[in-house]
Amino acid sequence: MLNNITFGQYFPADSFVHKMDARFKLLMTFALIVFAFVAFNFASLGLVAVFTVFVLLLTKIPLKMYFRTLKTIFIFILISAVLNIFYVTDGTLLFSYGIIRIYTGGILRAVFVAVRIVLLILISAVLTYTTTPTSLTDAIESLLKPLSKIGIDTHTFAMMMTIALRFIPTLIEETDKIMSAQKARGADMENGGLIKKIKSVIPILIPLLVSSIRRAKELADAMECRCYHGGKGRTRLKVLKAGRRDVVATISVCVLLTGIILLNIFI
């Protein structure tokens, strides 16, 4: 039931994007998200779209994985697009019924918003699909490094994130099991008012909490058994290293930015 979530998952492949330094990837993802917001017209947004599609193809991950992610939040995209139809009153009137008036401007705006949301989702999907959670947390740890100078324990923070990411699928699986077990005992989770629904969540949350505490204890033991003693003296199998790829990617993103600015101004 809960296990068809593709968002936030990693898909191994041997591609340009997979091999990029996670720090660069993280920063560029932020940059692209900002670009999608500052692209004011169809031409500049179109340029971002072309670039995004090019990156999708570069990842060598089957496009259907991206579609699957889009499908799960299709309703959300639709609602945000439709809401915009009624707010814009430019262009010619196409349709009116009572207080509802739809203008060509509204339709264009809806399409624009839908494209923008789709791009935001695809851009973040590229990051999570091509970067292992470990490299992602390593990247965050490395980018936060300056904070350790003012006494913030960035290693522990990164380790906490890694463990959280590692246990999300395990806990989803477990929730699924507990839900089935409670249903088998006659629990009704679909019907009833809000209070009843909240009440029906309690028999799921309590066993989940108890088992999480047990898991935490066992994991702590297992980590100690494997000589974990904090970040001191710890080396890494995979060290983030920027290479020629990251320079190429950075230049491409700069070119893209210039393109967006020019298109925003001149069209």
Partner: peptide, 27 residues
């Protein structure tokens, strides 16, 4: 499930030796 720390098999296997501070080639 409660002994695996990392989200990728080889990164998990590396966890112990990483804590022991071996250089990358040895890891």
């Amino acid at each position: 499930d409660n002994q695996i720390v990392a989200t990728i098999v080889e990164e998990d296997v590396a966890f112990g030796p990483e804590n022991l501070g071996f250089p990358q080639a040895e890891l």
